[in-house]
Write a protein that binds this DNA or RNA. Structure first.
Lengths: 260, 260
DNA sequence: GGCCTGCGTGACAAATTCCGTCATCCGCAT
DNA sequence: ATGCGGATGACGGAATTTGTCACGCAGGCC
Protein backbone atom coordinates (compact mmCIF):
# COMPACT_ATOMS: atom_id res chain seq x y z
CA UNK A 1 0.00 0.00 0.00
CA UNK A 2 1.72 3.13 -1.23
CA UNK A 3 1.63 6.15 1.02
CA UNK A 4 1.34 9.49 -0.74
CA UNK A 5 1.50 12.93 0.85
CA UNK A 6 -0.37 15.70 -0.97
CA UNK A 7 0.50 19.31 -0.21
CA UNK A 8 -2.33 21.30 -1.82
CA UNK A 9 -4.35 24.22 -0.49
CA UNK A 10 -7.18 24.07 -3.02
CA UNK A 11 -9.96 21.86 -1.69
CA UNK A 12 -11.45 20.94 -5.07
CA UNK A 13 -8.07 19.94 -6.49
CA UNK A 14 -7.31 17.99 -3.35
CA UNK A 15 -10.60 16.12 -3.60
CA UNK A 16 -9.87 15.18 -7.22
CA UNK A 17 -6.45 13.89 -6.32
CA UNK A 18 -7.84 11.98 -3.36
CA UNK A 19 -10.18 10.18 -5.72
CA UNK A 20 -7.39 9.44 -8.17
CA UNK A 21 -5.16 8.11 -5.40
CA UNK A 22 -7.94 5.98 -3.99
CA UNK A 23 -8.58 4.52 -7.40
CA UNK A 24 -4.87 3.77 -7.77
CA UNK A 25 -4.88 1.96 -4.43
CA UNK A 26 -2.74 4.49 -2.58
CA UNK A 27 -3.23 5.95 0.90
CA UNK A 28 -3.30 9.69 0.56
CA UNK A 29 -2.55 12.13 3.35
CA UNK A 30 -3.43 15.70 2.51
CA UNK A 31 -2.05 18.87 4.07
CA UNK A 32 -2.58 22.44 2.89
CA UNK A 33 0.79 24.09 3.60
CA UNK A 34 4.51 23.40 3.58
CA UNK A 35 4.44 23.60 7.38
CA UNK A 36 1.87 20.80 7.31
CA UNK A 37 4.12 18.88 4.94
CA UNK A 38 7.08 19.29 7.24
CA UNK A 39 5.09 17.96 10.16
CA UNK A 40 3.69 15.00 8.22
CA UNK A 41 7.10 13.98 6.88
CA UNK A 42 8.56 14.15 10.40
CA UNK A 43 5.84 11.85 11.70
CA UNK A 44 5.44 9.30 8.91
CA UNK A 45 7.22 7.68 6.01
CA UNK A 46 5.81 8.34 2.55
CA UNK A 47 6.50 6.75 -0.82
CA UNK A 48 5.79 9.93 -2.76
CA UNK A 49 5.27 13.62 -2.16
CA UNK A 50 2.93 15.48 -4.47
CA UNK A 51 3.49 19.18 -3.97
CA UNK A 52 1.74 22.26 -5.29
CA UNK A 53 3.77 25.41 -5.69
CA UNK A 54 1.54 28.30 -4.72
CA UNK A 55 0.77 27.57 -1.09
CA UNK A 56 -0.51 29.90 1.64
CA UNK A 57 2.86 29.82 3.41
CA UNK A 58 5.11 30.02 0.37
CA UNK A 59 6.33 28.18 -2.70
CA UNK A 60 6.25 24.39 -2.33
CA UNK A 61 9.46 24.27 -4.36
CA UNK A 62 11.34 26.03 -1.56
CA UNK A 63 10.41 23.24 0.79
CA UNK A 64 11.53 20.65 -1.79
CA UNK A 65 14.86 22.41 -2.00
CA UNK A 66 15.32 22.19 1.75
CA UNK A 67 14.46 18.48 1.67
CA UNK A 68 17.11 17.88 -0.95
CA UNK A 69 19.73 19.87 0.95
CA UNK A 70 19.30 17.37 3.77
CA UNK A 71 20.21 14.38 1.62
CA UNK A 72 18.51 11.62 -0.29
CA UNK A 73 14.79 11.60 0.20
CA UNK A 74 11.42 10.45 -0.93
CA UNK A 75 10.54 11.23 -4.57
CA UNK A 76 8.69 14.47 -5.29
CA UNK A 77 6.25 15.22 -8.07
CA UNK A 78 5.30 18.86 -8.44
CA UNK A 79 1.83 19.71 -9.75
CA UNK A 80 1.48 23.33 -10.62
CA UNK A 81 -0.42 25.91 -12.64
CA UNK A 82 3.04 27.40 -13.29
CA UNK A 83 3.41 25.28 -16.38
CA UNK A 84 5.87 26.90 -18.75
CA UNK A 85 9.07 25.10 -19.65
CA UNK A 86 11.07 27.56 -17.53
CA UNK A 87 8.93 26.71 -14.50
CA UNK A 88 9.52 23.02 -15.07
CA UNK A 89 13.25 23.52 -15.40
CA UNK A 90 13.26 25.51 -12.17
CA UNK A 91 11.31 22.79 -10.38
CA UNK A 92 13.36 19.88 -11.69
CA UNK A 93 16.66 21.60 -11.03
CA UNK A 94 15.31 22.53 -7.59
CA UNK A 95 15.12 18.87 -6.66
CA UNK A 96 11.78 17.60 -7.89
CA UNK A 97 11.80 14.26 -9.67
CA UNK A 98 8.94 15.17 -11.99
CA UNK A 99 6.84 18.20 -12.82
CA UNK A 100 3.34 18.17 -14.22
CA UNK A 101 1.51 21.26 -15.30
CA UNK A 102 -2.13 21.73 -14.34
CA UNK A 103 -4.46 20.78 -15.83
CA UNK A 104 -3.10 17.25 -16.23
CA UNK A 105 -4.35 13.95 -17.46
CA UNK A 106 -5.18 11.77 -14.43
CA UNK A 107 -3.89 8.62 -16.09
CA UNK A 108 -0.62 10.33 -16.93
CA UNK A 109 -0.34 11.55 -13.35
CA UNK A 110 -0.80 8.03 -12.03
CA UNK A 111 1.69 6.54 -14.50
CA UNK A 112 4.28 9.15 -13.61
CA UNK A 113 3.76 8.64 -9.89
CA UNK A 114 4.15 4.91 -10.34
CA UNK A 115 7.34 5.34 -12.34
CA UNK A 116 8.78 7.57 -9.59
CA UNK A 117 7.95 5.11 -6.83
CA UNK A 118 9.29 2.24 -8.88
CA UNK A 119 12.57 4.02 -9.52
CA UNK A 120 12.95 5.13 -5.88
CA UNK A 121 12.68 1.52 -4.77
CA UNK A 122 15.46 0.38 -7.10
CA UNK A 123 18.86 -0.16 -5.55
CA UNK A 124 21.45 2.23 -6.84
CA UNK A 125 23.96 0.74 -9.21
CA UNK A 126 27.42 0.96 -7.82
CA UNK A 127 30.86 -0.27 -8.82
CA UNK A 128 31.04 -1.76 -5.36
CA UNK A 129 28.03 -3.98 -5.98
CA UNK A 130 28.32 -7.21 -7.94
CA UNK A 131 24.98 -8.78 -8.72
CA UNK A 132 24.89 -12.28 -10.19
CA UNK A 133 21.56 -14.00 -10.42
CA UNK A 134 20.03 -13.81 -6.97
CA UNK A 135 23.32 -13.14 -5.18
CA UNK A 136 24.56 -9.63 -4.34
CA UNK A 137 28.13 -8.98 -3.29
CA UNK A 138 29.19 -5.67 -1.75
CA UNK A 139 32.90 -5.72 -2.33
CA UNK A 140 34.07 -3.08 0.14
CA UNK A 141 31.79 -4.02 2.99
CA UNK A 142 32.45 -7.70 2.33
CA UNK A 143 28.78 -8.50 2.66
CA UNK A 144 26.69 -10.97 0.76
CA UNK A 145 22.94 -11.13 0.24
CA UNK A 146 20.95 -13.85 -1.45
CA UNK A 147 17.39 -12.97 -2.44
CA UNK A 148 17.67 -9.91 -0.29
CA UNK A 149 18.62 -11.95 2.74
CA UNK A 150 21.87 -11.14 4.49
CA UNK A 151 24.34 -14.01 4.48
CA UNK A 152 27.02 -13.91 7.17
CA UNK A 153 30.28 -15.02 5.57
CA UNK A 154 33.77 -14.95 7.02
CA UNK A 155 36.68 -13.21 5.41
CA UNK A 156 38.02 -16.26 3.64
CA UNK A 157 34.57 -17.34 2.56
CA UNK A 158 33.97 -13.91 1.09
CA UNK A 159 37.20 -13.99 -0.86
CA UNK A 160 36.40 -17.41 -2.21
CA UNK A 161 32.94 -16.35 -3.30
CA UNK A 162 34.25 -13.13 -4.78
CA UNK A 163 36.78 -14.99 -6.88
CA UNK A 164 34.25 -17.54 -8.07
CA UNK A 165 31.76 -14.77 -8.85
CA UNK A 166 34.34 -12.75 -10.77
CA UNK A 167 34.67 -15.73 -13.06
CA UNK A 168 31.04 -16.71 -13.06
CA UNK A 169 30.30 -19.45 -15.54
CA UNK A 170 33.94 -20.59 -15.64
CA UNK A 171 35.39 -23.57 -13.82
CA UNK A 172 38.14 -22.63 -11.38
CA UNK A 173 40.47 -25.47 -10.48
CA UNK A 174 41.57 -26.05 -6.94
CA UNK A 175 45.05 -24.85 -7.74
CA UNK A 176 43.64 -21.65 -9.25
CA UNK A 177 41.69 -21.07 -6.06
CA UNK A 178 44.67 -21.90 -3.87
CA UNK A 179 46.68 -19.33 -5.78
CA UNK A 180 44.00 -16.65 -5.84
CA UNK A 181 42.52 -16.98 -2.37
CA UNK A 182 45.28 -18.60 -0.31
CA UNK A 183 48.31 -17.25 -2.18
CA UNK A 184 49.66 -20.77 -2.37
CA UNK A 185 51.62 -21.77 -5.45
CA UNK A 186 51.92 -25.35 -4.32
CA UNK A 187 49.60 -28.13 -3.36
CA UNK A 188 49.27 -28.29 0.44
CA UNK A 189 48.09 -31.88 0.11
CA UNK A 190 44.96 -31.13 2.10
CA UNK A 191 41.34 -30.56 1.20
CA UNK A 192 41.26 -26.97 2.43
CA UNK A 193 39.51 -25.71 -0.71
CA UNK A 194 36.84 -28.38 -0.50
CA UNK A 195 36.18 -27.61 3.14
CA UNK A 196 35.76 -23.89 2.51
CA UNK A 197 33.55 -24.47 -0.49
CA UNK A 198 31.39 -26.71 1.65
CA UNK A 199 31.09 -24.04 4.32
CA UNK A 200 30.26 -21.35 1.81
CA UNK A 201 27.68 -23.53 0.13
CA UNK A 202 25.92 -24.15 3.36
CA UNK A 203 25.68 -20.44 4.02
CA UNK A 204 24.31 -19.69 0.57
CA UNK A 205 21.85 -22.57 0.71
CA UNK A 206 18.18 -21.74 0.37
CA UNK A 207 15.79 -24.62 0.69
CA UNK A 208 14.27 -25.55 -2.63
CA UNK A 209 16.69 -23.52 -4.74
CA UNK A 210 19.81 -24.61 -6.61
CA UNK A 211 23.06 -23.64 -4.96
CA UNK A 212 25.01 -21.23 -7.18
CA UNK A 213 28.28 -23.04 -6.52
CA UNK A 214 28.52 -26.13 -8.66
CA UNK A 215 31.15 -28.85 -8.80
CA UNK A 216 32.73 -29.96 -12.04
CA UNK A 217 33.96 -33.37 -11.03
CA UNK A 218 37.64 -33.88 -11.70
CA UNK A 219 38.09 -30.19 -12.54
CA UNK A 220 36.93 -27.72 -9.94
CA UNK A 221 34.14 -25.37 -9.00
CA UNK A 222 32.09 -22.75 -10.81
CA UNK A 223 29.66 -20.02 -9.85
CA UNK A 224 26.49 -20.45 -11.85
CA UNK A 225 24.01 -17.64 -11.23
CA UNK A 226 20.53 -18.69 -10.19
CA UNK A 227 17.99 -16.43 -11.84
CA UNK A 228 16.00 -14.28 -9.39
CA UNK A 229 12.88 -15.30 -11.25
CA UNK A 230 13.57 -18.97 -10.63
CA UNK A 231 10.86 -20.28 -8.38
CA UNK A 232 11.37 -22.75 -5.60
CA UNK A 233 9.21 -25.29 -7.41
CA UNK A 234 11.93 -25.87 -9.98
CA UNK A 235 14.32 -27.23 -7.42
CA UNK A 236 13.74 -30.77 -8.63
CA UNK A 237 15.31 -29.93 -11.97
CA UNK A 238 18.89 -31.00 -11.37
CA UNK A 239 19.88 -30.41 -15.00
CA UNK A 240 22.17 -27.42 -14.59
CA UNK A 241 24.13 -29.13 -11.89
CA UNK A 242 24.94 -32.09 -14.08
CA UNK A 243 26.52 -30.06 -16.83
CA UNK A 244 29.43 -32.01 -18.20
CA UNK A 245 30.74 -29.44 -20.63
CA UNK A 246 33.00 -27.01 -18.82
CA UNK A 247 33.50 -23.67 -20.50
CA UNK A 248 37.10 -23.56 -19.47
CA UNK A 249 39.62 -26.36 -19.36
CA UNK A 250 40.54 -27.10 -15.80
CA UNK A 251 42.93 -29.84 -16.77
CA UNK A 252 43.69 -32.85 -14.64
CA UNK A 253 45.67 -30.81 -12.11
CA UNK A 254 42.44 -30.10 -10.27
CA UNK A 255 42.82 -33.52 -8.74
CA UNK A 256 46.39 -32.80 -7.73
CA UNK A 257 45.32 -30.59 -4.85
CA UNK A 258 43.71 -33.53 -3.10
CA UNK A 259 45.09 -35.60 -0.35
CA UNK A 260 46.19 -38.87 -1.98
CA UNK B 1 31.19 13.17 -17.10
CA UNK B 2 27.74 11.68 -17.72
CA UNK B 3 27.45 9.06 -20.42
CA UNK B 4 24.24 9.08 -22.39
CA UNK B 5 23.11 6.59 -25.00
CA UNK B 6 20.77 7.89 -27.68
CA UNK B 7 18.72 5.44 -29.71
CA UNK B 8 17.33 7.50 -32.58
CA UNK B 9 17.16 6.72 -36.27
CA UNK B 10 16.48 10.25 -37.50
CA UNK B 11 19.80 11.95 -38.29
CA UNK B 12 18.57 15.52 -37.86
CA UNK B 13 16.99 14.77 -34.48
CA UNK B 14 20.15 12.94 -33.43
CA UNK B 15 22.30 15.90 -34.40
CA UNK B 16 20.12 18.25 -32.35
CA UNK B 17 20.34 16.00 -29.34
CA UNK B 18 24.08 15.65 -29.76
CA UNK B 19 24.41 19.40 -29.58
CA UNK B 20 22.19 19.59 -26.52
CA UNK B 21 24.16 16.84 -24.79
CA UNK B 22 27.44 18.46 -25.64
CA UNK B 23 26.22 21.76 -24.25
CA UNK B 24 25.12 19.96 -21.07
CA UNK B 25 28.58 18.43 -20.71
CA UNK B 26 27.52 14.87 -21.39
CA UNK B 27 29.19 12.27 -23.58
CA UNK B 28 26.62 11.06 -26.09
CA UNK B 29 26.78 7.75 -27.92
CA UNK B 30 24.26 7.45 -30.70
CA UNK B 31 22.86 4.32 -32.28
CA UNK B 32 19.99 4.02 -34.73
CA UNK B 33 18.26 0.81 -33.67
CA UNK B 34 17.37 -1.24 -30.64
CA UNK B 35 19.92 -3.83 -31.78
CA UNK B 36 22.52 -1.07 -31.65
CA UNK B 37 21.29 -0.13 -28.22
CA UNK B 38 21.57 -3.68 -27.02
CA UNK B 39 25.16 -3.89 -28.26
CA UNK B 40 26.16 -0.54 -26.75
CA UNK B 41 24.68 -1.40 -23.35
CA UNK B 42 26.50 -4.73 -23.36
CA UNK B 43 29.80 -2.97 -24.03
CA UNK B 44 29.60 0.15 -21.88
CA UNK B 45 27.99 1.61 -18.81
CA UNK B 46 25.65 4.55 -19.35
CA UNK B 47 24.08 7.00 -16.95
CA UNK B 48 20.99 7.51 -19.08
CA UNK B 49 19.27 6.00 -22.07
CA UNK B 50 17.31 8.28 -24.37
CA UNK B 51 15.15 6.13 -26.58
CA UNK B 52 12.91 6.91 -29.55
CA UNK B 53 9.94 4.68 -30.16
CA UNK B 54 9.59 4.28 -33.88
CA UNK B 55 12.84 2.62 -34.83
CA UNK B 56 13.72 0.64 -37.98
CA UNK B 57 13.82 -2.62 -36.04
CA UNK B 58 10.78 -2.05 -33.84
CA UNK B 59 9.36 -0.05 -30.98
CA UNK B 60 12.03 1.26 -28.57
CA UNK B 61 9.60 0.67 -25.76
CA UNK B 62 9.76 -3.08 -26.34
CA UNK B 63 13.49 -2.98 -25.70
CA UNK B 64 12.92 -0.93 -22.54
CA UNK B 65 10.49 -3.58 -21.34
CA UNK B 66 13.07 -6.31 -21.85
CA UNK B 67 15.66 -4.25 -19.93
CA UNK B 68 13.29 -3.90 -17.03
CA UNK B 69 12.45 -7.60 -17.01
CA UNK B 70 16.13 -8.22 -16.33
CA UNK B 71 16.19 -6.19 -13.15
CA UNK B 72 17.30 -2.78 -11.96
CA UNK B 73 18.85 -0.77 -14.73
CA UNK B 74 19.95 2.56 -16.01
CA UNK B 75 17.23 5.23 -16.19
CA UNK B 76 15.35 5.61 -19.47
CA UNK B 77 13.81 8.71 -20.99
CA UNK B 78 11.59 8.14 -23.99
CA UNK B 79 11.37 10.87 -26.64
CA UNK B 80 8.61 10.23 -29.09
CA UNK B 81 6.27 11.77 -31.61
CA UNK B 82 3.70 9.46 -30.06
CA UNK B 83 2.71 12.14 -27.60
CA UNK B 84 -0.80 11.57 -26.39
CA UNK B 85 -1.44 10.88 -22.73
CA UNK B 86 -2.21 7.24 -23.52
CA UNK B 87 1.19 6.87 -25.22
CA UNK B 88 2.90 8.35 -22.17
CA UNK B 89 1.04 6.02 -19.83
CA UNK B 90 2.04 3.06 -21.98
CA UNK B 91 5.68 4.14 -21.94
CA UNK B 92 5.86 4.89 -18.23
CA UNK B 93 4.07 1.70 -17.29
CA UNK B 94 6.36 -0.14 -19.71
CA UNK B 95 9.37 0.79 -17.61
CA UNK B 96 10.49 4.22 -18.78
CA UNK B 97 11.36 6.71 -16.07
CA UNK B 98 10.16 9.69 -18.08
CA UNK B 99 8.42 10.36 -21.34
CA UNK B 100 8.71 13.53 -23.41
CA UNK B 101 6.66 14.18 -26.49
CA UNK B 102 8.32 15.65 -29.57
CA UNK B 103 8.71 18.49 -30.19
CA UNK B 104 10.15 19.28 -26.74
CA UNK B 105 11.82 22.19 -25.08
CA UNK B 106 15.59 21.50 -24.97
CA UNK B 107 15.96 23.05 -21.52
CA UNK B 108 13.16 20.92 -20.17
CA UNK B 109 14.77 17.84 -21.72
CA UNK B 110 18.07 18.63 -20.00
CA UNK B 111 16.39 19.32 -16.66
CA UNK B 112 14.46 16.07 -16.82
CA UNK B 113 17.54 14.09 -17.80
CA UNK B 114 19.44 15.62 -14.89
CA UNK B 115 16.65 14.78 -12.48
CA UNK B 116 16.66 11.16 -13.66
CA UNK B 117 20.41 10.79 -13.31
CA UNK B 118 20.31 12.47 -9.91
CA UNK B 119 17.60 10.14 -8.67
CA UNK B 120 19.28 7.01 -10.10
CA UNK B 121 22.43 7.85 -8.14
CA UNK B 122 20.52 8.10 -4.86
CA UNK B 123 20.68 5.09 -2.60
CA UNK B 124 17.40 3.31 -2.19
CA UNK B 125 15.58 4.02 1.03
CA UNK B 126 15.18 0.88 3.06
CA UNK B 127 13.97 0.03 6.55
CA UNK B 128 17.32 -1.69 6.99
CA UNK B 129 19.21 1.54 6.38
CA UNK B 130 19.62 4.16 9.09
CA UNK B 131 21.13 7.38 7.82
CA UNK B 132 22.18 10.05 10.28
CA UNK B 133 24.18 12.96 9.00
CA UNK B 134 27.10 11.47 7.09
CA UNK B 135 26.86 8.05 8.74
CA UNK B 136 24.97 5.12 7.21
CA UNK B 137 24.13 2.04 9.21
CA UNK B 138 22.91 -1.14 7.51
CA UNK B 139 21.24 -2.93 10.35
CA UNK B 140 21.05 -6.46 9.01
CA UNK B 141 24.47 -6.59 7.44
CA UNK B 142 25.96 -4.81 10.44
CA UNK B 143 27.94 -2.50 8.21
CA UNK B 144 28.75 1.15 8.67
CA UNK B 145 29.74 3.78 6.14
CA UNK B 146 30.83 7.33 6.76
CA UNK B 147 30.76 9.65 3.76
CA UNK B 148 30.42 6.62 1.57
CA UNK B 149 33.55 5.03 3.03
CA UNK B 150 33.21 1.61 4.54
CA UNK B 151 34.06 1.49 8.24
CA UNK B 152 35.03 -1.91 9.63
CA UNK B 153 33.43 -2.26 13.05
CA UNK B 154 33.23 -5.28 15.29
CA UNK B 155 30.01 -6.72 16.58
CA UNK B 156 30.10 -4.91 19.90
CA UNK B 157 31.13 -1.67 18.27
CA UNK B 158 28.23 -1.98 15.86
CA UNK B 159 25.74 -2.54 18.66
CA UNK B 160 27.06 0.42 20.55
CA UNK B 161 26.82 2.69 17.52
CA UNK B 162 23.41 1.38 16.67
CA UNK B 163 22.11 2.17 20.14
CA UNK B 164 23.63 5.63 20.16
CA UNK B 165 22.28 6.30 16.67
CA UNK B 166 18.78 5.13 17.60
CA UNK B 167 18.78 7.85 20.23
CA UNK B 168 20.64 10.41 18.19
CA UNK B 169 20.72 13.76 19.93
CA UNK B 170 20.08 12.23 23.35
CA UNK B 171 22.66 11.55 26.01
CA UNK B 172 22.93 7.90 26.96
CA UNK B 173 24.46 7.26 30.34
CA UNK B 174 26.99 4.54 30.87
CA UNK B 175 24.49 2.46 32.78
CA UNK B 176 21.98 2.82 29.93
CA UNK B 177 24.61 1.57 27.51
CA UNK B 178 25.67 -1.22 29.85
CA UNK B 179 22.07 -2.33 30.00
CA UNK B 180 21.36 -1.97 26.29
CA UNK B 181 24.59 -3.26 24.78
CA UNK B 182 26.07 -5.48 27.47
CA UNK B 183 22.87 -6.66 29.16
CA UNK B 184 24.35 -5.67 32.50
CA UNK B 185 22.02 -4.31 35.15
CA UNK B 186 24.84 -3.54 37.52
CA UNK B 187 28.02 -1.54 37.43
CA UNK B 188 30.98 -3.82 36.64
CA UNK B 189 33.29 -1.21 38.15
CA UNK B 190 35.37 -1.07 35.00
CA UNK B 191 35.60 1.38 32.14
CA UNK B 192 34.42 -1.04 29.50
CA UNK B 193 32.00 1.47 27.97
CA UNK B 194 34.65 4.15 27.72
CA UNK B 195 37.07 1.77 26.04
CA UNK B 196 34.55 0.69 23.45
CA UNK B 197 33.49 4.25 22.75
CA UNK B 198 37.11 5.15 22.22
CA UNK B 199 37.55 2.31 19.77
CA UNK B 200 34.42 3.19 17.88
CA UNK B 201 35.40 6.82 17.72
CA UNK B 202 38.73 6.02 16.24
CA UNK B 203 37.09 3.98 13.50
CA UNK B 204 34.60 6.73 12.66
CA UNK B 205 37.27 9.42 12.70
CA UNK B 206 37.78 11.40 9.52
CA UNK B 207 40.57 13.95 9.60
CA UNK B 208 39.21 17.45 9.69
CA UNK B 209 35.64 16.49 10.58
CA UNK B 210 33.87 16.41 13.93
CA UNK B 211 33.38 12.96 15.37
CA UNK B 212 29.66 12.16 15.63
CA UNK B 213 30.09 10.65 19.07
CA UNK B 214 30.27 13.38 21.68
CA UNK B 215 30.93 13.19 25.40
CA UNK B 216 28.67 14.92 27.89
CA UNK B 217 31.01 15.15 30.81
CA UNK B 218 29.58 13.63 33.95
CA UNK B 219 26.62 12.23 32.07
CA UNK B 220 27.42 10.03 29.13
CA UNK B 221 27.68 9.96 25.37
CA UNK B 222 25.49 11.10 22.49
CA UNK B 223 25.39 10.62 18.75
CA UNK B 224 25.30 14.02 17.07
CA UNK B 225 24.90 13.75 13.30
CA UNK B 226 27.48 15.59 11.25
CA UNK B 227 25.83 17.13 8.22
CA UNK B 228 27.00 15.67 4.89
CA UNK B 229 27.34 19.23 3.64
CA UNK B 230 29.75 20.10 6.41
CA UNK B 231 33.09 20.79 4.81
CA UNK B 232 36.43 19.82 6.21
CA UNK B 233 37.41 23.47 6.54
CA UNK B 234 35.06 23.87 9.46
CA UNK B 235 36.95 21.40 11.55
CA UNK B 236 38.39 24.16 13.68
CA UNK B 237 34.96 25.06 14.97
CA UNK B 238 34.77 22.97 18.11
CA UNK B 239 31.48 24.51 19.10
CA UNK B 240 29.18 21.50 18.77
CA UNK B 241 31.47 19.37 20.84
CA UNK B 242 31.37 21.74 23.75
CA UNK B 243 27.65 21.76 24.08
CA UNK B 244 26.79 21.90 27.73
CA UNK B 245 23.04 21.54 27.48
CA UNK B 246 22.01 17.91 27.25
CA UNK B 247 18.63 17.24 25.77
CA UNK B 248 18.03 14.39 28.14
CA UNK B 249 18.86 14.11 31.80
CA UNK B 250 21.52 11.50 32.30
CA UNK B 251 21.68 12.06 36.01
CA UNK B 252 24.77 11.63 38.13
CA UNK B 253 24.73 7.83 37.81
CA UNK B 254 26.79 8.11 34.63
CA UNK B 255 29.77 8.43 36.87
CA UNK B 256 28.78 5.35 38.84
CA UNK B 257 30.01 3.00 36.12
CA UNK B 258 33.52 4.21 36.60
CA UNK B 259 36.30 2.49 38.39
CA UNK B 260 36.61 4.29 41.72
C1' DG C 1 27.25 -54.59 -10.19
C1' DG C 2 31.75 -53.80 -8.30
C1' DC C 3 35.53 -51.02 -7.67
C1' DC C 4 38.10 -46.96 -7.48
C1' DT C 5 38.54 -42.15 -7.30
C1' DG C 6 36.80 -37.75 -6.11
C1' DC C 7 33.96 -35.01 -3.17
C1' DG C 8 31.48 -33.42 1.09
C1' DT C 9 31.40 -32.68 5.78
C1' DG C 10 31.98 -33.57 10.97
C1' DA C 11 35.32 -33.00 14.43
C1' DC C 12 39.30 -31.15 16.39
C1' DA C 13 43.20 -28.09 17.18
C1' DA C 14 45.81 -23.97 15.98
C1' DA C 15 45.63 -19.19 14.55
C1' DT C 16 43.50 -14.90 14.65
C1' DT C 17 40.38 -11.49 16.19
C1' DC C 18 37.42 -9.60 19.58
C1' DC C 19 36.45 -8.12 24.14
C1' DG C 20 37.12 -6.85 28.95
C1' DT C 21 40.19 -5.22 32.44
C1' DC C 22 43.68 -2.42 34.27
C1' DA C 23 46.50 1.42 34.64
C1' DT C 24 48.17 5.76 33.38
C1' DC C 25 48.04 10.16 31.52
C1' DC C 26 45.50 14.11 29.93
C1' DG C 27 41.68 17.38 30.02
C1' DC C 28 38.26 19.86 32.42
C1' DA C 29 35.96 22.11 36.18
C1' DT C 30 36.10 24.23 40.53
C1' DA D 1 46.45 24.08 42.03
C1' DT D 2 43.77 20.07 42.80
C1' DG D 3 40.71 16.45 42.06
C1' DC D 4 37.67 14.08 39.20
C1' DG D 5 36.27 12.31 34.75
C1' DG D 6 37.55 10.69 30.32
C1' DA D 7 40.70 8.65 26.69
C1' DT D 8 43.66 5.19 25.29
C1' DG D 9 47.70 1.72 25.31
C1' DA D 10 48.70 -2.81 26.72
C1' DC D 11 47.70 -7.36 28.10
C1' DG D 12 45.31 -11.68 28.71
C1' DG D 13 41.15 -14.51 28.19
C1' DA D 14 37.09 -15.59 25.20
C1' DA D 15 35.17 -16.27 20.80
C1' DT D 16 35.50 -17.00 16.02
C1' DT D 17 37.93 -18.33 11.96
C1' DT D 18 40.82 -21.35 9.55
C1' DG D 19 43.29 -25.48 8.34
C1' DT D 20 43.86 -30.43 8.83
C1' DC D 21 42.35 -35.05 9.10
C1' DA D 22 39.47 -38.83 8.44
C1' DC D 23 35.56 -41.19 6.98
C1' DG D 24 31.52 -42.02 4.42
C1' DC D 25 29.04 -41.06 0.23
C1' DA D 26 28.59 -40.06 -4.76
C1' DG D 27 29.96 -40.56 -9.44
C1' DG D 28 32.14 -42.70 -13.20
C1' DC D 29 34.33 -46.43 -15.45
C1' DC D 30 35.00 -51.21 -16.58
Amino acid sequence: MRRVLLVEDDDAAAADLARIADHAGWTLTRVASTAGGRTAVARETFDLLVVDRMLPDGDGLDWVRSLRARGPAVPVLILSALGRAANKVEGLDGGADDYLAKPFDPDEFVARARALMRRAAMPAESPDLVRLGDVEIHVKARTVHRRGQFVAVSRKEFELLHKLADHAGDVLTRSMLLDAVWNLRFDPQTNVVDVHVSRLRRKLEIDGLPNPIVTQRGEGYAFEPVSPSEAKDLAGAKGPMDATNPSEPGGPDATGARQP
